[in-house]
Design a protein around this nucleic acid. Structure first.
Lengths: 157, 157
DNA sequence: GAAGATATGTTATATTATATCAACCCTTCA
DNA sequence: TGAAGGGTTGATATAATATAACATATCTTC
């Protein structure tokens, strides 16, 4: 199973992450309800960026609500808890690969196979940070997405 | 008139940019038609990120087509010619501030007043580039957007 | 057990974007 | 000349993404 452009032990990855999410919610006093938990589980199972309506289909198949707000609300929760990220370029959502660490995510998105690699770039400390300081701008969040070709798709065009 | 977070001579900026766009199209053998020219003019006049449907309203008011593809096609042209950029976070479009130079744009977006500053960050050379090289990823385009508060909105919250 | 906060689910609608077809205006070149 | 082909415009129709508003349920707190 690919995670980003590499392979890994998928089922362990899912259960580990769910576990850590649960612990985090308990500690942060967040309400990790069945819908929210199932939504994260689905994102983790897919391990790629999923549209809100794709997620909704899966949630509905699990006996949860069938209407868009069900998916969007679960995604809002996961994103603000730091368990998932929105890929703006794709209008899609992906489970966080670095759950736990407080990070400014950056994504490498393959335009051919749509695989996504979550890099941990502290951009605000780099050139974007320089530009912001020069302009007197106070950064709160960053969207950093690089589009191109992953190693596999470079080899097999 | 603000450009990004600063002020500037607006009408000179518009005519200069249109002029340069015209020259560029002549040299690159691009078809700078009335609709496309007017679309760029509108984006320059607003000097902020405009939704496709906002642009469409203005185009229609100028006697051009009234249907969505009219705006989206003009925007496609402007974006691929490098005359405008899409702000993914806002699903909106803004005229390029550095027309002519081949650049990887980066934006500072104020969440309070929606002002946008186009910084010229060569991200691919920075940390994102490091991550990409490490992953064997070939970057073609980058989306870099920082969200936060501009100087004015920091002072008057 | 009432008041208030949070979560779920629904209906309805708003916003953003694209597929497809017809018409038009070019240039090209047989 | 005029048919063929490319590129541009315009419209119709529809797809894909997202939110507003309301009813119900659940849980805590007092």
């Amino acid at each position: 199973m690919p995670l980003g452009f590499e392979h890994h032990n998928h089922s362990a990855c899912i259960s580990d992450t769910l576990q850590r999410a649960e612990v985090h919610c308990r500690e942060a006093n967040l309400n990790f309800t069945p819908v929210r938990r199932r939504a994260l589980e689905i994102l983790l199972q897919e391990h790629r960026a999923l549209g809100a309506y794709d997620l909704l289909t899966e949630l509905a198949a699990s006996g949860m609500g069938k209407q868009p707000p069900v998916a969007y609300r679960a995604l809002d929760f996961l994103v603000s808890a730091g368990f998932a990220h929105k890929i703006e370029r794709l209008n899609a959502y992906i489970a966080c690969s670095h759950l736990g660490s407080d990070h400014a995510p950056a994504f490498l998105i393959c335009r051919n196979c749509n695989a996504i690699n979550e890099a941990n770039a502290e951009l605000a400390n780099g050139r974007l940070g320089d530009a912001a300081r020069a302009a007197g701008f106070q950064i709160e969040r960053t969207v950093v997405e690089a589009l191109g070709l992953c190693p596999a798709c470079q080899d097999a065009p």
